[in-house]
Design a protein around this nucleic acid. Structure first.
Length: 440
DNA sequence: TCTGGGGTCCTAGGACCC
DNA sequence: TCTGGGGTCCTAGGACCC
């Protein structure tokens, strides 16, 4: 036996475990909650302008329809297979998302909302029957919201994401999978068929590069030299490697951090050639971006505006952007809109067919924390006035519906920007569209 | 012809995620 | 005819300063 004086590093016994809760085919599942006739048939949800497929039911995936499939290319196949497509209804999805997370909090207070359909949970190891607990969560969420979920359990976020992928792909696990140690041979059956880019943090490009180094699958990646990975691909890949070995690099962030940039942009249904058409769109995007900015209590100091012609037509391609620094950081819609439009003036060129535009607010900081610039002290009073005006503006639009109040520069006489022929009613957010359940 | 070195800040671009 | 939108983080390189 070794000397009792020798100190060996003890294996860390985790006190908790991470779970990722992922809503299955979220947008499709939301549609199905309110329209049961969509169950068990291939369903797709479409992007703005009903351009391409952004969510697919399992039945649609089984037909080989990829993410982002353009509707016009697939139309005939869809008709042949009896596929139902729906226009995206983001207000509904956002509302359903909040319901799911509210329900999750009944089980666990330490939640990080990672995306509209995913959350990380920190579960105390005291719950030793992990699978049973996960199973309870899954059943209750379905019961309360109608949304099916999958749960991956592991010691790190990256492993939990991998476990989740396995849970989804292998029906026998009923949507729940636990990885304590990825090297354990019991996982081989499920891990071997996965590709490098099934790992969270490894995309197309890095998977391609790894293959060049002779790393072709997850097990070869695990055996790779950590320092070499860092040297060739950077710290992010090193962290991925560590996380797969069970070493935590990414903790669960319970406090929701505010956004560091806010973007609002759209592809137009038809190309615009006139300045006024593009300007109207830009004004609308600036307005939307300012709303999110105020909603998180921030101000921005930089305003980007960008325009671009159709990316699929090579001839006459033009795209440009302009960045302005505000004299003072602001959340005031008229000021930001004016700045965006001034930027647009700089980059707009006639005789182009513009297909897309956007406004991006950058260098964001919390409101009220910014030091007043000495030279702008006299603006203080007008700023207070602006703040009060925007508060009322937001309040009224919240009560009476988005778009009740608008600024004049959005009233240029051009057609509506989006077309969503197949959108389902906003069941949960609009009184006039809510489902009426007849009582007996 | 030759022509320092180190630090910081900013920006653009790339890669990833959903 | 018709091809989404909104984020994050890291890094390399330039500007600028001493």
């Amino acid at each position: 036996m070794g000397s009792s004086h020798t100190q060996y590093p003890q294996p860390v016994v985790p006190k908790d475990i991470y779970a990722i809760v992922d809503c299955n085919n979220f947008y499709v599942s939301c549609e199905r909650v309110f329209d049961p006739s969509l169950r068990d048939i291939p369903v797709g949800v479409l992007s703005n302008n009903d351009g391409c497929v952004i969510a697919r039911s399992n039945e649609l995936k089984a037909l080989g329809v990829p993410m982002g499939a353009p509707l016009f290319e697939w139309k005939d196949k869809f008709i042949e297979y009896g596929v139902v497509v729906k226009s995206a209804n983001f207000a509904l999805y956002q509302d359903m998302s909040e319901r799911v997370f509210r329900s999750l909090r009944e089980f666990c207070e330490e939640i990080e909302i990672y995306s509209i359909d995913e959350a990380f949970l920190r579960i105390n190891i005291g719950h030793k029957r992990l699978i049973e607990l996960a199973s309870d969560i899954k059943n209750i969420i379905y019961q309360w919201t109608g949304i099916p979920i999958s749960i991956g359990l592991a010691n790190t976020k990256t492993l939990a994401k991998l476990a989740n992928k396995i849970a989804k792909k292998n029906a026998e696990h009923e949507g729940i999978y636990l990885i304590e140690n990825l090297q354990d041979p019991k996982h081989t059956t499920y891990v071997s068929p996965l590709d490098l880019d099934d790992i969270w943090g490894i995309g197309n490009k890095i998977a391609y590069n790894l293959r060049i180094y002779g790393i072709n699958n997850i097990y070869e990646f695990l055996d790779a030299d950590r320092h070499l990975l860092k040297q060739q691909q950077g710290v992010l890949l090193e962290r991925t490697w560590l996380e797969l070995h069970g070493i935590r690099c990414y903790p669960i962030n319970i406090t929701r951090s505010s956004k560091k940039g806010i973007l609002c942009s759209r592809t137009f249904k038809r190309a615009y050639t006139e300045y006024d058409q593009v300007a109207k769109a830009v004004a609308k995007f600036a307005d939307n971006a300012c709303r999110s900015l105020r909603a998180q209590g921030s101000i921005a100091s930089h305003v980007w505006v960008f325009i671009t012609t159709d990316r699929f037509t090579p001839e006459g391609r033009y795209s440009n952007s302009h960045r302005s620094k505000l004299s003072q950081p602001s959340d005031y819609t008229p000021k930001i809109t004016k700045t965006a439009l001034a930027g647009l003036r700089q980059i707009f060129r006639p005789n182009h067919k513009y297909k897309r535009a956007g406004v991006f607010l950058d260098n964001i900081s919390p409101k009220g924390q910014i030091q007043q610039n000495f030279f702008y002290q006299h603006d203080l009073q007008s700023e207070r006035k602006h703040t009060s005006l925007m508060r009322h503006f937001d309040k009224l639009n919240q009560i009476w519906g988005k778009g009740t109040l608008k600024f004049a520069n959005q009233f240029l006489n051009v057609p509506e920007i989006q077309e969503q022929a197949l959108r389902s009613p906003r069941y949960t957010t609009r009184w006039e569209e809510i489902i009426v359940v007849k009582s007996i």
